[in-house]
C-alpha cells in the first residue's frame, strides 16, 4: 500500500476504474439536489477514486490531483464555500441559507435557490473528498518502530504473508 503493487493486473484495473468512479461522483454531486445522492456521497466517491489510485500505485500516486499537504487547506476552502453561501444570504437580510433573498440580475427566485443549493453541494463535496483523502494519507504515515510494537515497523511484508 505504501509501495506500488507487484501485479500488473491490479495497477491496470485501478487506472481504468478510478476515472469512472470519479465521473460517477461528479454526476452524483451535480444531480444531488433532486435525486438520491448529494455532496457527501459524491465527495466520498471522488475520494474513493483517489484512494484507489494510492492503494494500487503506492501512496505517491495521484499527487497532482490532491497532494498530501494541500488536502486539509482545500477541505477548509470547501467548508468555507458551504458556510459562506449561508452567510451571504444573511448579509442580504434573509435567514441562514435562505437563498431566495439574494438578488441576482436576470435570474428569478426559484433558479437562485437551485444554484444556491448546487453551490452548497459543491462545497460539501470538495470538503468531504479532501478530508477523506487526508485521513487515508495520515493512516499510512510512517509508523515509528521505536515506541512499542515490533510489528509496526514492517507493515508491507506483513500484508503479503498468506
Amino acid at each position: 500500500m505504501t509501495s506500488p503493487s507487484q501485479s500488473v493486473i491490479i495497477i491496470v484495473a485501478g487506472r481504468a476504474l478510478a476515472p469512472l468512479i470519479q465521473l460517477f461522483g461528479i454526476y452524483v454531486i451535480i444531480h444531488g439536489h433532486y435525486s438520491p445522492g448529494g455532496g457527501f456521497q459524491g465527495g466520498a466517491l471522488l475520494a474513493a477514486g483517489v484512494i484507489l489510485l494510492r492503494m494500487t500505485e503506492g501512496r505517491c500516486a495521484a499527487q497532482s490531483e490532491i497532494s498530501t499537504e494541500a488536502a486539509i487547506p482545500v477541505a477548509s476552502i470547501g467548508a468555507l464555500i458551504f458556510a459562506g453561501t449561508g452567510l451571504v444570504t444573511l448579509a442580504f437580510g434573509g435567514h441562514y441559507m435562505d437563498y431566495g433573498v439574494v438578488p441576482v440580475p436576470g435570474i428569478e427566485e426559484p433558479m437562485v435557490r437551485y444554484y444556491g443549493i448546487l453551490l452548497v453541494e459543491f462545497g460539501i463535496g470538495l470538503a468531504v473528498m479532501t478530508a477523506l483523502v487526508a485521513i487515508f494519507d495520515d493512516m499510512l504515515d510512517d509508523p515509528s518502530p521505536e515506541n512499542g510494537d515490533v510489528d509496526a515497523g514492517k507493515p508491507a511484508e506483513d500484508l503479503k504473508r498468506p
Binding site: 466517491l45 475520494a47 474513493a48 493512516m139 507493515p155
Partner: peptide
Amino acid sequence: VVGAGIVGVYFIAAVSQT
C-alpha cells in the same frame, strides 16, 4: 458509498499498520 467504499479501505490501511 461510505461503508463499503471508504471505511473498508480504512480498515485495510489500519490492518497494514499492525
